[in-house]
Simulated assay, not measured.
Amino acid sequence: MGLTRKVTSASTLGAVDFRSDKERIARSTRQGAKATKKQNKLIAEQNDLLAQQAAPAPYVQQPQYVAPAPPPRRRRSA
Rank of each mutant, 00 (worst) to 15 (best):
31 Q>I: 12
58 P>C: 02
26 A>M: 12
29 T>V: 12
6 K>I: 05
35 A>R: 14
38 K>Q: 13
13 L>D: 05
56 P>Y: 00
8 T>I: 10
68 P>W: 00
76 R>F: 05
78 A>T: 14
70 P>S: 12
36 T>I: 11
41 K>P: 05
77 S>L: 15
78 A>Y: 08
73 R>Y: 07
36 T>D: 13
1 M>T: 07
2 G>C: 09
33 A>H: 08
15 A>M: 10
73 R>K: 15
41 K>E: 15
31 Q>P: 02
32 G>A: 11
27 R>D: 15
11 S>I: 13
70 P>G: 10
76 R>H: 09
58 P>Q: 06
35 A>T: 14
17 D>R: 10
36 T>P: 00
24 R>H: 05
64 Q>D: 14
7 V>R: 05
33 A>W: 02
64 Q>F: 06
70 P>L: 12
34 K>E: 14
13 L>Q: 07
47 N>F: 03
62 Q>N: 08
63 P>T: 03
28 S>G: 00
60 V>P: 01
37 K>Y: 11
69 A>C: 05
10 A>N: 01
72 P>T: 03
70 P>Y: 03
68 P>K: 07
1 M>I: 10
9 S>T: 03
50 L>I: 12
74 R>S: 11
30 R>S: 14
38 K>I: 10
42 L>F: 05
68 P>Q: 09
14 G>A: 06
69 A>H: 02
62 Q>H: 05
28 S>E: 15
63 P>V: 02
60 V>Y: 04
49 L>R: 15
73 R>Q: 12
62 Q>E: 06
60 V>T: 13
7 V>N: 01
75 R>K: 13
54 A>K: 11
32 G>F: 03
51 A>M: 07
6 K>C: 01
5 R>W: 02
70 P>W: 03
74 R>G: 08
26 A>N: 15
59 Y>C: 01
49 L>Q: 14
25 I>G: 01
24 R>F: 06
66 V>Y: 01
43 I>Q: 11
63 P>L: 04
6 K>T: 01
12 T>M: 00
25 I>A: 13
16 V>W: 02
28 S>P: 03
7 V>M: 11
23 E>F: 00
